[in-house]
Design a protein around this nucleic acid. Sequence first.
DNA 1: TATGAATGAGACTTCATTCAT
DNA 2: AATGAATGAAGTCTCATTCAT
Lengths: 198, 198, 198, 198
Amino acid sequence: MESRQRILDATVEIAGERGYDGTSIAAVSAKCGLPASSIYWHFKDKDDLIAAVIERSFETWLTAVELPAQETGTPLERVLTMAANVARSLVDAPDFLRLGLMLALERRPTEPRGRTVFLQVRDISRQKITEVITALFPALDEAAVDTLATYAIAGADGLFIQREVIGDTVDLVALFELHARLVHDAAFRMAAVAPPRG
Amino acid sequence: MESRQRILDATVEIAGERGYDGTSIAAVSAKCGLPASSIYWHFKDKDDLIAAVIERSFETWLTAVELPAQETGTPLERVLTMAANVARSLVDAPDFLRLGLMLALERRPTEPRGRTVFLQVRDISRQKITEVITALFPALDEAAVDTLATYAIAGADGLFIQREVIGDTVDLVALFELHARLVHDAAFRMAAVAPPRG
Amino acid sequence: MESRQRILDATVEIAGERGYDGTSIAAVSAKCGLPASSIYWHFKDKDDLIAAVIERSFETWLTAVELPAQETGTPLERVLTMAANVARSLVDAPDFLRLGLMLALERRPTEPRGRTVFLQVRDISRQKITEVITALFPALDEAAVDTLATYAIAGADGLFIQREVIGDTVDLVALFELHARLVHDAAFRMAAVAPPRG
Amino acid sequence: MESRQRILDATVEIAGERGYDGTSIAAVSAKCGLPASSIYWHFKDKDDLIAAVIERSFETWLTAVELPAQETGTPLERVLTMAANVARSLVDAPDFLRLGLMLALERRPTEPRGRTVFLQVRDISRQKITEVITALFPALDEAAVDTLATYAIAGADGLFIQREVIGDTVDLVALFELHARLVHDAAFRMAAVAPPRG
DNA sequence: TATGAATGAGACTTCATTCAT
DNA sequence: AATGAATGAAGTCTCATTCAT
């Protein structure tokens, strides 16, 4: 029970730093102090281990982000609060998204299950974003919501990468707020132009 | 001379799909038809090879992007044209950015030279963007230009990733134009608020 | 446990015949019947393996030489007995000294640990010789004892090499006795000339 | 012409430090500045190169030792002068003997030609020593001369090794003189005991 | 007289994984 | 519930050598 967590802790750290191929069972074993064979007692194979890491980190990240989900205020206020929450969660636990993006960028013949899992949980996030946009701007048609959701996620990914690359100088919270504001404005304008649904 | 190119061609393809660790010399050898030992005649080691790939792909990408650099029209028109150019270049030759982002996301104890090179050439691009923003919106102060440049690059990275992940359904050119429009509007508003420089 | 010994047995034989660079892991693997990767379970790397070989062979050799250490008789008798013992031990198990001398003669930028270990155990032997000379000829000053110890070891090394090079025609026991006799005479004369210590 | 010498210079240095297997053509190429293929223009193969090195260093060493070969004085004086000469030559150019001994100690299935050459030139030296002993002590029978020659060479090898291992602290000239004195005394005593020849 | 380019074999080492205990 | 030992495949890289020019 406790060993399983130690293994996952070690793996999230290594895989978050070096990606799928860069994560060797021997390295995980060294970092968590358990022999390699013990890792195979808890996980079917490396693929299973990485997938488990993705699952667990996503759950951790989800609770960190969702807890203070706010339901009142103007659309802009609510969007800004959400953006700040996401930004802070990414600063605190960047391993999830870093590893996920590395997996997502790869294109290998037999796709690691961890990649599939990441794309699935990412889709859940996208679903949430779509719902929020639809709720805040009911006038938007489906295509517009889709475009905005894509753009919203893209900005989040991109800003996260900027921080990973450039370092702490990047004020992630401020940039996420700028991003939220721009998405909000775009949605506002699109909604004004669009004919009401129905 | 010709062999060197064949090796680079093979490597760009494999590394663009599987990242640093996923790129085995044996795979490169198989793809380019030269024995592994010949690769070591042309490149000091794997690190050197990957770095050379980054260098060459960046140059290719640069010429693809820069050739149609336009100098007339309103700021919005010019920004839109640039965005469309970049979008098209990324659709045509995604290997450069895909590999670069994978390298950039990694955090290994001894940094691959390819990563350093990628970050350097990326800085050149950022410089260019900064210059364009300054030229189009002279009223902006340095901090604002910096923020906008960071946001512009972040959007580009993020949208690229969205396309890589979701697939061709994503209309990269359209999204880049939306991105350009939003950055332009933000710059416009910031410049209006800001006191004129000097 | 048992595998470790099989690996060491194979290595001592090969390394004793071909030196550090001439000892390939593949050859050791072939000789001991275990796959190469198993060797790396028992030893960190080739350097570690060679060092372990030196350590074990020295201990084997030490017990072979020391058991019949005699404590009575005239100085000459005692010295002759010791010399004969050493000679016989070198005839029986020449691998230790052969490998050790090969390592000792090398001068590579990063010194193999096996070399360090050999020089250390060699120093232990020198210590023993020094003690014996001091015990048998208390009148000798430190410098004289040092010179005699150096000469005694040099003769042993040199005679061993002669046998290795020329072959069994060389009567190692007889030559070691001649050597012992000459060292004894030299010590005797030096002690007679030297003013008594203290 | 000049290239050949540069190659030999580089090889003697590397081979004198790392032995046969430790001497790679690439390393020699790097040290002498000529491409590997040029080495093969001057020498048939690696074996040929090493053998050439042995031959050349022996000749260099021979002239260094022989030039001041003295023909007058008492036996002891002459022996002492010779010993000092040899000692000095070994201090000045240790590569020859160091490489030679490394080759001599190895026992590989297909003997390097360099080893054969070394043993041959070593035999020439032994011949010289035999002649000198016979000349100085005509009363000795063949077996005694042989024993003394073996012992003389063994001492030289062993003392050389001591210096290589321990370092410059070892006064090679003084130790060679001690060695010469002991060999001389042994010869003197053996000759006194032995019935005159013929 | 020399060398740039190539090459198959083999070097050391790590890989993911299994299995008996 | 866990692990010491093993293993075949594959990893990066160096080896001695060749050959066309």
